[in-house]
Design a protein around this nucleic acid. Structure first.
Ligand SMILES: [Zn+2]
Ligand SMILES: [Zn+2]
Ligand SMILES: [Zn+2]
Ligand SMILES: [Zn+2]
Lengths: 168, 168
DNA sequence: TGTTGACATGTGATAATATAACTTTTAGGT
DNA sequence: ACCTAAAAGTTATATTATCACATGTCAACA
């Protein structure tokens, strides 16, 4: 129900990147006694198949089209689960979700969101996070979670791009 | 309509911190040919009077109570204007707004948001921003705006605090 | 094997956040 | 006084997110 990407090599055993990511996700979860149920699996696939980020309702529409429930909690529950277990990230600047590009590595990431084509790049941000945590500690504040996001223009969109608009 | 904070010294000329901030804001705007109209002024006051952050609808309710319009665009327009001109920051993790604590200095800030008491601390983040911008440039991405936010526990809330919950 | 309990899913209703489109008012310049 | 542009008001609607409760699935185990 989710095949695509034929190869020029006769080899048709090679899993697509999406399938590989799903397998990896499944192992990760099983190692923690958690289940990648059908809705969750399909939700992750949907995000993996998408270059940019998707809103919860975009995900929901695709899930419903595949025969899953069509009410918001269906999408939000799957998304929340995947976020909680590090397979998906939530982008607060744009109220959207994107598949993690290196799951299972217990990482902290920052996100570069193209305002033109909506593509999202996940970059490592251990150092950013560490700096923020230590700045915070200096103020007596104990950091639990962070949102490190930037919007701007991706490499492909930098030419012929419209200026900008409002503030930070 | 917005007085409070009596002093023990007989001096009653000293402006409150809020009034001072309003004056500063007004000068800053006038210097750019912009107007701090009544709704905008009151909106800024409301945020300045609040230790934490307020949602747009909280602001709206207060504005309406003061005789301004009671429909969402009234609040959103004032808030957007203030954000655009650096007097207010928008917190995307919590869909809320907070007065800038050092306006007019063309700064980039990060925000520490207490999940317990909702208080918000604004910290300088020129270095964080610079790091992110340069990490991004290395990926060919041109940063225009950033959201650097953390949630956790403020100094006052660290004792007797409930553990935590979900993921980043 | 049947019961039970935890987890997962489905659904309807509603809350919370945000914007669009249009009208009226206001502040300033001529 | 008249005109114009910006601001404020208002109605309606779009978008995002959660609550509450019913139903289904599955494995532990009596
Ligand atoms: Zn990731
Ligand atoms: Zn782009
Ligand atoms: Zn500030
Ligand atoms: Zn606190």
């Amino acid at each position: 129900m989710t095949e695509s990407a034929p190869h020029s090599t006769g080899a048709r055993k090679l899993p697509t990147p999406v399938a590989a990511a799903i397998d990896r996700a499944e192992s990760l979860l099983q190692g923690q006694g958690l289940r990648l149920t059908p809705v969750r699996r399909r939700t992750l696939e949907i995000l993996l198949e998408t270059p940019g980020a998707l809103g919860a309702y975009d995900v929901l529409a695709r899930l419903a089209a595949d025969g899953f429930g069509s009410q918001p909690p269906v999408a939000y529950r799957a998304l929340d689960f995947l976020v909680e277990h590090g397979l998906v990230h939530r982008l607060r600047r744009i109220n959207a979700f994107t598949a993690c590009s290196h799951p299972g590595e217990h990482h902290h990431a920052a996100f570069l969101i193209c305002r033109n084509c909506k593509r999202v790049e996940e970059v490592h941000a251990e150092h950013l996070r560490a700096t923020l945590v230590s700045d915070a500690r200096r103020a007596g504040f104990e950091v639990e979670r962070t949102s490190l996001e930037a919007s701007g223009l991706c490499p492909d969109c930098r030419e012929g791009a419209i200026p900008d608009g409002a503030a930070t």
